[in-house]
Design a binder for these strands. Structure first.
Lengths: 143, 143
DNA sequence: AGCCAATTCACCCGAAAGTATGAGGTTTCC
DNA sequence: GGAAACCTCATACTTTCGGGTGAATTGGCT
């Protein structure tokens, strides 16, 4: 529902831009190539954005399968109550990454990473990431 | 993901329609105008392609680093040795203790612990304690 | 259609961690 | 007796973490 509104606004803005550009062109003849360039730039940007978003969503699930394959575990572990995403974050914590770096690796915002980290800590009953590493290794959640 | 594609198509279609309509109504005298729509479509496609390719490439590199880290592949070189005190502090860090707790264990002030920790980080060439744990285990400094 | 778990993101706040610099004290070794 | 290494502690500052709360979205299941 929110997205529809968003896309509507984007669409409207684009249409407005095009209208404006063509309005200006009525009075500025022979600037057709410049106008085409603007359109091309806008569409390129929109296309790249769409492509990136598309691929990220697709890759997200692939990564889950990849990590699962590495550890010979199904994506969802019954013995630990950690979700797949939380396990991913936990593994990156054990690699020594900061929350910001984890966000970069996983294409998440810093806030989202913090949320996952907090949930991991709560489920492992620890207060610090160093404790989480310790406990996770004891529980066999990490290699 | 399906909706994004959908919205993308709608966007493209609308843009094209606008182009076509204005071509018919206003810019009949400009045969060039028809090309703008084509350009827009091509750029959209190119943009999506570029976005997908770029994101996929970036992900591949990330995954490679991730796998390398998991499998202990990264080159490990001998580094300057830690002093006895620094090694003590490092071991307590690996056990998940906070600086304050380490100070309590070793009967030191918090500032002193911070100094030792900073020196350990410098010698191990890391910035965070989680990285220090990882590296110390690679170097065999920890059990 | 509605519920529910998972995921994502935001904001605020305090605590902890990390950086930089300086400064005494001791031991050891030349 | 002086250089060098180590240990100790301090102040000041910036960054990162962690906790708490709220909320929107999605996908799966009933």
């Amino acid at each position: 529902m929110r997205q529809i509104l968003l896309y509507g606004l984007i669409l409207g803005a684009l249409l407005f831009l095009i209208q404006y550009a063509q309005y200006r062109l009525v009075f500025v003849q022979h600037a057709e190539s410049a106008y085409t360039g603007v359109i091309a730039a806008i569409c390129c940007a929109a296309g790249i954005w769409a492509g990136v978003v598309l691929t990220r969503r697709y890759q997200r699930k692939s990564n889950a399968r990849l990590l699962a394959a590495i550890h010979n575990h199904p994506p969802v572990q019954a013995e630990s109550s950690l979700t797949p995403r939380e396990l991913e974050v936990l593994q990156l914590i054990a690699q020594g990454l900061s929350n910001q770096e984890i966000a970069g690796h996983l294409f998440l915002s810093l806030n989202t990473v913090k949320t996952h980290v907090s949930n991991v800590f709560a489920k492992l009953d620890v207060q610090r990431r160093t404790q989480a590493i310790q406990k996770a290794k004891q529980l066999g959640l990490l290699a």
